[in-house]
């Protein structure tokens, strides 16, 4: 376990080199909140409540959801894996005395841990800039449950991106898969609009899939809502994590023989 912790620590420190990059990516989180501010500002000009959200709770939703989504850095890890396989650099991970998925997870965790402080600062700044009467819950149980769901959700996203990354053994270039995935995921995790706006039949179907619990449910819990979904959320995310763990293990075993380490 120590070696994974050390990996995370190294990546945490490495982020200090890219200070400017970190700061700009944090600043750009404003775009989602600004989008919500302009779009929902126009909508709430005519009605005070939409699907149970007031203008304030809607902005609070986007601020919390942006914060959670920014913690997920696994997409860039997926790109990295795919590139390393294509250019032959993946060999260095094979000879490491570590589990490859564990290594990449530790690496991503290091980056996310580094960003945690900056994201929190950014969220506070946006609250002041947009003068939001921030509607976060003070219920300890909800906050703890949301934290557990966020961690399980990050692990699931890591597994999903790792899975797409290792598909490069077969397809070489998985960039198209990654981009399409990014487009779809941002909608189904509730990053573009709260999923509560969707028809109830669709929401019901979405609760069987993990994406509902990655960002949407933790955000709603932090807003003090959907408390009745905590238990099912944790169980479903655990199930999907286990299922993807198995899928990754089988896929890796089957596809690794195709790797020829081109370029070394």
């Amino acid at each position: 376990m120590k070696k994974y912790f050390e990996t995370a620590k190294v990546l945490f420190k490495a982020q200090l080199v890219y200070r400017f990059d970190t700061i700009t990516s944090i600043i750009f989180t404003i775009s989602k909140v600004f989008l919500a501010y302009v779009l929902w500002g126009a909508i709430f000009g005519k009605q005070s409540v939409v699907s149970g959200f007031t203008f304030n709770s809607m902005l609070s939703y986007y601020i919390i959801s942006s914060f959670i989504n920014q913690l997920d850095q696994s997409s860039s890890t997926g790109w990295q894996i795919s590139n390393e396989i294509r250019n032959g650099g993946f060999s260095k991970y094979i000879i490491k005395p570590m589990n490859i998925f564990g290594y990449f997870t530790a690496q991503t965790a290091g980056v996310s841990a580094f960003l945690l402080f900056f994201n929190l600062t950014a969220a506070v700044i946006w609250i002041f800039i947009f003068r939001v009467d921030f509607a976060i819950t003070s219920n300890g149980w909800y906050i703890q449950s949301a934290s557990v769901l966020i961690l399980l959700g990050l692990l699931f996203m890591m597994q999903l991106n790792y899975f797409i990354g290792i598909l490069a053994f077969k397809f070489l270039d998985t960039g198209i898969f990654m981009m399409i995935k990014d487009n779809i995921v941002q909608f189904i995790i509730g990053s573009l609009i709260p999923l509560a706006l969707l028809p109830s039949g669709i929401i019901k179907t979405m609760t069987f899939f993990p994406f509902y619990y990655v960002s949407y449910l933790p955000t709603m819990l932090l807003l003090g809502r959907n408390g009745n979904e905590i238990f099912s959320g944790i169980v479903i995310l655990l199930f999907w994590n286990a299922a993807f763990g198995l899928l990754i293990s089988i896929t890796y075993k089957r596809l690794k023989s195709r790797y020829d380490g081109v370029g070394i």
Binding site: L39, I43, K46, Q47, V50, I193, L197, L198
Partner: peptide
């Protein structure tokens, strides 16, 4: 996204 929003509101 916009279809969903328009299912709740008449105009933006």
């Amino acid at each position: 996204m916009f279809s969903t929003i328009y299912s709740q509101v008449g105009s933006i």
